[in-house]
Design a binder for these strands. Structure first.
Lengths: 334, 334
DNA sequence: TTGTAAGCGTTATCAG
DNA sequence: CTGATAACGCTTACAA
């Protein structure tokens, strides 16, 4: 694989001129430029990005850490990021953190080592102060789907408590009072916020569910199935389920269905996120819209803007609002 | 951000010693090593990966090009790749090609410029000879979901023709004879192979569908809906649909449903890929299992193996076989 | 317009 | 065990 000197030699010019051509620099004669270009093509030259990046800041890429690439939730994020990146002609380098502290840490450190100036990070397992440390170090680092007070202007997040409240409010308004909750493992800040939003609302209505009707399980389709099994096993009757996300809701529905329990006739279910999936299943899922893609777009724009030292940007709060989407999985009780 | 010299100075040693510590090199005194480590921590040192990569081949990362991150099909691929990468302690750098020639080209070139020694590429738009060129240049480059004869040992693909045949065979065995096909745009090699596999089989049975019952549309949920609309508009009756993939099949079902046509009672539908989605919808989708994740695992292992110059590896053919998965969306005709 | 030469941060070779 | 010093491939003043 030839380097810049090889090209220079072959074209009978200095490396400097070749460099100028590579970067579309101005000070090269018309015909020299053409000759150099020709030689580069002939020899299959490809500039070494590592060598280029050693000097100046690499502003042509953005580094990403997401938890998981299979989960449609993160796919939606990736998609939002991608749109902005394509628009601004920026390459995406992506790592996954798999919800594990060490992996997340390693992923961010790798990004740091590559000196990415812009980063969009989803971290569920790292402690606030660790993230604050990274944020202070890298001006173009933005946290998505997480809120940390000290670096609020670097966060893009959803008002989860409001989402939880929305679910509870709606389900109550439909006349339900025996309400079960299937939640994610409670180490996720999202989930605690959603849960507390819902519980606060229910408490005000004197409708707090008994502890047996609050199940924690993995935030997946399978987790939803397991949670419903446990709920049923408890023997305590319920007419509605508030799920932590659509995946759990859909798992829940499938398990209820398998047990001969009809949704929404026997039990109502409400999801969270409003993924594409929610529209595809039967009954169509009533859920809370989570504008993930928009958040991702916002986060990417913010990261890119902050990464150019222009410093003149006014940080605005980037809290997004969830919205209720009524479909078919909740039935009104008379 | 401090560099190796700063650390050396602060620790009162030479850069060489710091470098040895960074790389867990052997020839450093016990207490010197500790002192250096301490200084690195104190000063928040992070080695510059670009500078490291300038010399030697970067064997700690693998470069990936996929078409799209939202499509569950590619998510599954990403997941397979991720598993191997995690296992072998390799970082993933991922780009997307968006099914467009120029974007795919740019994505691969970027990987090349970063001198990744291992690459897993999904390319649907680039010409064979372009890919062959890249493959010759990078020994650790593997093509996934595509077959090119000249570099067969660098390809990991599905026997699509067999998949098409499987669909046709099954649908015939269930007594269907008025068969419609909804296919992807015909520039995709997958789709032509699937289609021709199905058509060949049907022709043998004298069951070739009329041209009006072969619809091309985008290989998405929406595309499936559009295709069904066109099919219905043609006025030609059909009792079964062979879809190019699960997304189209599910779109098709939703449109049929909207038109008051029941699946499978009025029309049978068979998908392709066997994504998670296929199990979540009602009726559960009868489909062709596409071992995407396994293919991705294989491709990644191959890329990683080929990227180490050990050269002693025997390339084996990596054609995967599709399998019929019978669920609920096809009904036998009496 | 073109070339020379000094970096950029790291690793590797070779002395000590 | 430790330290100079020369690469690595490229960019960029500064000269010419």
């Amino acid at each position: 694989m030839p380097n810049i000197k090889d090209i220079a030699r072959a074209a009978g010019v200095s490396p400097a001129s070749v460099s100028r051509v590579i970067n579309n620099g101005p000070k090269v004669g018309r015909e020299t430029r053409e000759r150099i270009k020709q030689v580069m093509r002939d020899m299959g030259y490809s500039p070494n990005a590592n060598a280029q990046a050693i000097n100046d800041q690499n502003n042509t890429s953005i580094g990403i850490v997401l938890a998981d690439l299979v989960d449609p939730f993160f796919s939606a994020m990736a998609h939002g990021i991608e749109q902005v990146a394509t628009l601004k002609n920026v390459q995406i380098f992506m790592n996954s953190g798999a919800f594990e502290r060490e992996t997340e840490l390693r992923a961010i450190e790798t990004l740091l080592e590559h000196r990415y100036k812009a980063m969009v990070i989803h971290s569920s397992a790292l402690e606030d102060n660790v993230l604050i440390g990274f944020a202070r170090k890298v001006p173009g680092l933005v946290l998505i789907n997480r809120y940390i007070d000290e670096i609020a202007e670097r966060c893009v997040w959803l008002d989860d408590a409001m989402g939880g409240q929305l679910m509870a409010d709606y389900i109550c308004s439909q006349g339900h009072s025996a309400i079960a909750i299937i939640d994610a493992p409670n180490n996720l800040s999202n989930s605690t916020n959603r849960l507390s939003g819902a519980l606060t609302f229910l408490k005000q209505r004197q409708l707090s569910p008994p502890i047996q009707l609050i199940e924690h399980a993995e935030a997946t389709y399978e987790g939803g199935r397991v949670a419903v099994q446990n709920l049923l096993a408890s023997g305590i009757p319920f007419s509605a389920i508030l799920a932590h996300n659509d995946a759990m809701a859909i798992g829940a529905i499938s398990m209820l269905d398998a047990q001969g329990i009809n949704v929404p006739d026997d039990v109502s279910v409400i999801g969270f996120d409003d993924l594409m999936l929610a529209r595809c299943i039967k009954p169509k899922l009533t859920t809370i819209n989570n504008p993930i893609e928009e958040m991702a777009i916002k986060a990417t724009e913010l990261a890119l803007a902050n990464s150019q030292q222009h410093t003149g940007n006014q940080p605005r709060m980037a809290a997004f609002k969830p919205e209720l989407v009524i479909r078919q999985s909740v039935k009104g009780l008379r």
